[in-house]
Measured scan of single mutants.
Amino acid sequence: MEVRTIKVFTTVDNINLHTQVVDMSMTYGQQFGPTYLDGADVTKIKPHNSHEGKTFYVLPNDDTLRVEAFEYYHTTDPSFLGRYMSALNHTKKWKYPQVNGLTSIKWADNNCYLATALLTLQQIELKFNPPALQDAYYRARAGEAANFCALILAYCNKTVGELGDVRETMSYLFQHANLDSCKRVLNVVCKTCGQQQTTLKGVEAVMYMGTLSYEQFKKGVQIPCTCGKQATKYLVQQESPFVMMSAPPAQYELKHGTFTCASEYTGNYQCGHYKHITSKETLYCIDGALLTKSSEYKGPITDVFYKENSYTTTIK
């Protein structure tokens, strides 16, 4: 009895394709271990004539594949690729409408935090270190965002349907971005203890939790000093293409032309909904596939993004 075979390709990165001759009487799992086709788990399936010449994702289970996976995804987590594939199996079914010149995501599976993050990423200057993220990001900007969303979920250790947080998501993504040249110098002034300067680099240099107003941050924000008295913390120097200011959701007025974009969060910790506000020729609110415009805006804002380049204080 002759062994019926077909020729397929296996890959971990969709760049390096490895030619395989597979036995049609055995499952993919018996031949390769966990195997995925377009995100779908085909591990328990036997090869079919229609699979001839198709590319299958496999887990990096030998040295060659491990090197290829690390170079593309910059992670050695053995569960990463499987999590990416199972997320992709959902995100490829989502709709990605162009809204006001940006790629958004039609609401499904509690994905409003991903839509808000995706919209924000198209408006701030950011370059990702893992080629996987950078490639998928370019495709997302062009309207094909399924891979990018699935990668975000995998890097953030999230599953489809789980509630997510924009600030946490951005923080994970910033860790995989090139923020080497970003720098922030802060000064804390206390009447009792004097003053202390701190220099922050990388992710810490672009994120701040405690106030939404970048102007206020430049002037000074009140913080408790270690001595128990009130101290003032203010920005001395900022070198970065953008800054992200966050605070627990509270009524906040966004003035046209003073910011790049913002995240609105309605609801409580267990259950809520994100919308995205962007400042173009007027203010726009993007909620999944829905767009509304207004000249002014007041609502429960939790993150505001500002364009920056270089700032030095005039406070002496």
Rank of each mutant, 00 (worst) to 15 (best):
E2K: 07
E2Y: 09
K7F: 09
V8T: 07
F9C: 09
F9Y: 14
T10S: 08
T11Y: 04
V12W: 02
D13P: 08
N14L: 10
L17T: 14
H18Q: 09
T19Y: 12
Q20A: 11
D23I: 12
S25H: 15
S25M: 14
M26N: 13
M26K: 12
M26V: 14
M26F: 11
T27E: 14
T27R: 09
Y28N: 09
G29E: 13
G33D: 00
T35R: 09
T35G: 12
Y36F: 11
D38Q: 11
D38E: 12
A40L: 13
A40D: 14
D41T: 07
K44G: 10
I45F: 14
P47W: 01
N49D: 13
N49G: 06
S50Y: 12
E52S: 12
E52G: 11
G53N: 08
K54Q: 11
K54W: 11
T55L: 07
T55H: 11
T55F: 04
V58L: 07
L59N: 14
N61Y: 14
D62K: 07
D62L: 06
L65S: 10
L65Q: 12
L65H: 10
V67D: 14
A69W: 05
A69P: 03
F70I: 12
F70C: 14
E71T: 12
Y72T: 08
Y73R: 03
Y73N: 05
H74N: 13
T75C: 09
T75A: 09
D77Q: 04
D77K: 05
G82V: 14
G82Y: 10
Y84Q: 01
Y84V: 09
S86L: 11
A87Y: 02
H90G: 13
K93Y: 13
W94F: 07
P97I: 11
Q98A: 12
V99H: 10
V99R: 09
N100E: 14
S104H: 09
I105R: 04
I105T: 06
K106M: 02
W107V: 04
D109P: 01
N110V: 04
N111M: 09
Y113C: 07
A115M: 14
A115D: 02
T116V: 15
T116M: 06
T116K: 03
T116G: 01
A117W: 00
A117P: 00
T120G: 05
Q122W: 01
Q123H: 10
I124A: 05
E125F: 03
E125K: 12
E125V: 02
L126K: 04
N129Y: 07
A132G: 07
Y138V: 13
R139P: 02
R141V: 11
R141A: 09
A142Y: 10
G143H: 00
G143D: 03
E144F: 09
A146S: 11
A146W: 07
A150E: 11
A150K: 01
L151K: 01
I152D: 00
I152H: 03
A154V: 02
C156V: 13
C156N: 05
N157D: 10
K158T: 07
G161A: 09
G161F: 04
E162A: 13
E162T: 05
E162K: 00
L163M: 09
V166E: 01
E168W: 15
T169R: 03
T169G: 09
M170I: 07
M170T: 01
S171N: 12
S171I: 08
S171R: 15
Y172W: 07
Q175I: 07
H176I: 02
L179M: 05
L179K: 00
S181R: 12
C182G: 12
K183E: 05
K183L: 11
R184C: 04
R184K: 01
R184A: 11
L186D: 01
L186P: 00
L186A: 09
L186V: 15
V189H: 10
T192K: 12
C193W: 00
G194P: 06
Q197A: 12
T198M: 13
T199F: 03
G202I: 02
V203E: 00
V206I: 08
Y208N: 04
Y208D: 04
M209T: 15
M209W: 15
T211R: 00
L212T: 12
S213G: 01
E215A: 08
E215P: 00
Q216L: 08
Q216V: 05
Q216K: 11
F217N: 02
K218D: 00
K219M: 13
K219H: 03
G220V: 03
I223H: 05
G228P: 01
K229M: 08
K229E: 15
K229D: 15
Q230C: 01
Q230E: 13
A231H: 01
K233N: 05
K233L: 15
K233I: 12
K233D: 07
L235S: 01
V236E: 02
Q238K: 04
Q238T: 03
S240V: 03
P241R: 08
P241H: 06
P241Q: 08
P241V: 02
F242T: 01
V243K: 00
V243T: 00
M244A: 02
M245H: 01
M245R: 03
S246P: 01
A247C: 06
Q251W: 11
Y252Q: 03
G257D: 06
T258A: 10
T258R: 08
A262I: 07
E264T: 03
Y265P: 00
T266G: 05
G267E: 15
G267V: 15
G267N: 15
G267C: 15
Y269N: 15
Y269K: 15
Y269R: 15
Q270E: 15
Q270F: 15
Q270K: 10
C271M: 15
C271T: 00
C271G: 15
C271F: 15
C271K: 14
G272Y: 06
G272L: 00
H273I: 00
H273S: 01
H276D: 01
I277T: 00
T278G: 10
S279E: 05
S279L: 07
L283G: 03
Y284I: 13
C285K: 09
C285V: 14
D287H: 02
L291G: 12
K293F: 07
K298S: 14
P300K: 09
I301Y: 05
I301C: 07
I301A: 00
T302E: 08
T302Q: 04
D303L: 09
V304G: 00
F305K: 04
F305S: 06
F305Q: 05
Y306R: 04
Y306G: 01
Y306S: 02
Y306I: 05
E308C: 09
E308A: 08
S310G: 13
Y311D: 06
Y311S: 07
T313P: 10
I315W: 15
